[in-house]
Design a protein around this nucleic acid. Sequence first.
RNA 1: GCCCCCGUAGCUCAACGGACAGAGCAGCAGCCUUCUAAGCUGUUGGUUGUGGGUUCGAAUCCCGCCGGGGGCGCCA
Length: 611
Amino acid sequence: MFENEQRAIEAKIIAFCRQQDLPLTTLKWQPIPFSGEWGMSTSFFQAAADEARAGRGQGIPVPQRAQQIAEQVKVQIGSAAGISRIEAVKGYLNLYFAPGEYAARVVHTILQKGADFGRGVPKNERVMVEYAQPNTHHSFHIGHARNALLGESLARITEFGGFETIRASYPGDIGLGVITVLWAYEKFYKGQQPSDIHERGQWLLKIYAEATRLLSEKENETPAEKAQREAYEAERREMYRKWDAGDAGVRALWQETREWSLEELRAILAILDIQIDVWFFESEVDEPSKAIVNELLERGIAEDERPQGGPVIVKIDEKLGLTKEKYRTAVILRNDGTTLYLTKDLALAKQKFEQYHVDRSLYVVDNRQSLHFQQVFKILELWGFPQASKCYHLAYGFVSLPEGAMSARKGRVALFKDVADEAERRALAAMTERTPDMSMEKKREIARQIGLGALAYAMLSVDNNKDIIFDVDEALNFDGHTGPYIQNAYVRANSILKKAQAEGIQVQRETSTPGITAFEYALTKHEIELVEQLSRFPAAVEQAAQEYRPLVIATYAYDLANVFHSFYHSVPVLQAEGAQTQAARLQLVAATRQVLSNALRLLVIQAPEVM
RNA sequence: GCCCCCGUAGCUCAACGGACAGAGCAGCAGCCUUCUAAGCUGUUGGUUGUGGGUUCGAAUCCCGCCGGGGGCGCCA
């Protein structure tokens, strides 16, 4: 946020180093890591080490030499605008900001930019984030929720970070799993259906589990059982064949049941506040994907083993000239001419590049598919798409339960809707004691925001490559390092501002006159830490967008809430001594509320006005 | 056999190659007539799996080993 000052000082340091013949061309800045102190620091270890390596170190140990340089630089800078103090210590050069001046600037900037504070400069690149790819004919469970929340948060972050962003969903609406459900449905449950849209998915899931039992080989199977199973298997195959051939009856059944799932998916996405821009369906990519197989054959990338009864393959390692197996050989078409997951992803990628002109293609898919995406990206590279280098698989660890992996067959699934409802119930129970005057309707709404906030934060506050063992009590805990903790900070800030308004105290929301926000009093440690944390938001957004990591924002938001809670506890705002102090603190609170709101938005968490 | 991910406090997790490795939960001791106690303050707890290497400096980068998880030509 203080680029001008930084650049001016940098210029001085680099000029000095050039004059001293020191090997230093770029400077790395970091915040001073001491609590209650606010400023930026850089070190001279690298310069000292380079100098020594060049044989001009005069035998002085690197740390000592770094300290010498720091001291000389300190003298050279003398004084600088906005810097209250400069020190050289342990090879570091620490520049302490003049808190009042910087506080005014930070707060002023935030209030002026409002919801846009932290927005990155336009990157002039189009990003497509693909997430929310559940299979239809199944229910949406907590693992899907991690995917959806991670994807949506990533999309919000890239968008806010300055990338033009397209949100894409890719439901798996066809495949053996889907056919299995259709087969069992038609055979045993034809004409039945639950009315509630959230129960249909669960019901189909039960049918799937039952079908899978019937179709899998048992231990010590009798000849009769074996015959029965094989008969079922033949029926299922026949169903798939009919679907493929476009049989009207099978297609109609498929359409109807598919719509149940999509209806539920849309409802859940709405609950999560997710709006998808582009829907790709596996069933719609199937036919076009056959064309790309021929293209890859013509280009000499793929090899046809069908004459020998084999599939169409791409020998990726061989094509890349690798001797050790890494990307292996991938099958892109079965010998019966039907397509695979990989075929469709290749066709879809091509479509994204050519039809949607995306520069960066991001895939939020669980980490068991890492090899699959490495293969996709490498084939795209062999194919000659320059965007291949900007494809990224955001691989996240899968979500399991304390009892073990989720399994439809074993009926061990934590459904999203059940968890969300439970979250709302728990939040509502807590609210009943806290806000007895509120209407039930309002309470419900806020309870839902809190419940979902807890859930979203539990998913986003863990680095994406880590597996999550989903414990309901832990995920729906509202104390400590949680979503509601951050929401509560927002509510407290809001509460102060509301009260100020009620008492007729003017809160300057926007100031066109710089300096009207005066922090010309001795700022407490808490105020300095708060302002400092606020000033870091743009950098956090930039980092999260570059690294595709919502965790950076999750951590940031918690730290900000933490600093604010401490501030709230020990620094009076409305009771502050002196109108000027009160005015300044009110603006600081308004700025905090704004940044909390901006950060929560990136985490797909609502900011309730009260709680 | 090969590839990928992980190993940090009792538990769950953080930490652009930088200053004493930080939070939460759990435990212990305090704080509600004052802007909401979903909060605050204090405190207990560590040879960052292990052995080397690179570096002025390693939880972080490289190599070996141990332990856990995932994946590997016609599932998605």
